[in-house]
């Protein structure tokens, strides 16, 4: 099975890349997805390992994955080492001034006689999860940067004015 979702983000590619370059940072953006960095490959990047948990049924489905493509500002892809066989890719492309097209591709296949049926049953939920993930990335990328709070002006005797 293959899922492809895309979204336009009103933010430059480097801003979007900063949000997705470490997959562990995606945890919390979408409740159906949890990603944890492997302590043995800290720092992320190419060949880094992560543990992925995606909720598609009564229990999250887990897999250990390895980053197989890491082109800053353009591509991030991983493939599964254990668990359900899958590939995942996030592609960023400039779509105008301060605008980015973010594409998510997810391919997966379950083994066995009813593997295709299991894939079909999980398709809708997975697609919705990834759609929400892209929407959450967009929301985060378009959020105005937080300005540092100015300290309130104080009078010479220390009271607020």
């Amino acid at each position: 099975m293959r899922i492809e979702e895309s979204i336009y983000v009103d933010a430059p590619t480097d801003r979007v890349w900063a949000l997705i370059k470490d997959p562990a940072a995606l945890t919390g953006l979408e409740e159906g997805l949890a990603i944890e960095a492997d302590a043995e490959t800290p720092g992320g990047g190419l060949r880094a390992h992560y543990r992925i948990l995606v909720r598609v049924g009564p229990t999250p489905i887990g897999a250990d994955v390895e980053i197989v493509e890491f082109t800053p500002g353009r591509e991030l892809a991983w493939t599964s080492l254990t668990g359900v066989d899958h590939r995942f890719r996030l592609r960023l492309r400039e779509a105008g001034a301060k605008r980015t097209r973010l594409v998510l591709r997810f391919g997966y296949s379950s083994a066995g006689p009813l593997g295709l049926l299991a894939d079909l049953v999980s398709y809708g939920r997975l697609r919705a999860t990834f759609r929400r993930l892209l929407a959450a990335v967009k929301l985060e990328a378009e959020r105005p940067p937080r300005r540092p709070r100015r300290a309130p002006a104080r009078s010479s005797n220390g009271t607020r004015q």
């Binding site: 379950s110 066995g112 006689p113």
Partner: peptide, 12 residues
């Protein structure tokens, strides 16, 4: 690995 998807589907 081959039995897991089918069994999980049925049990679920």
């Amino acid at each position: 690995r081959e039995l897991l998807p089918a069994m999980w589907l049925l049990a679920s």
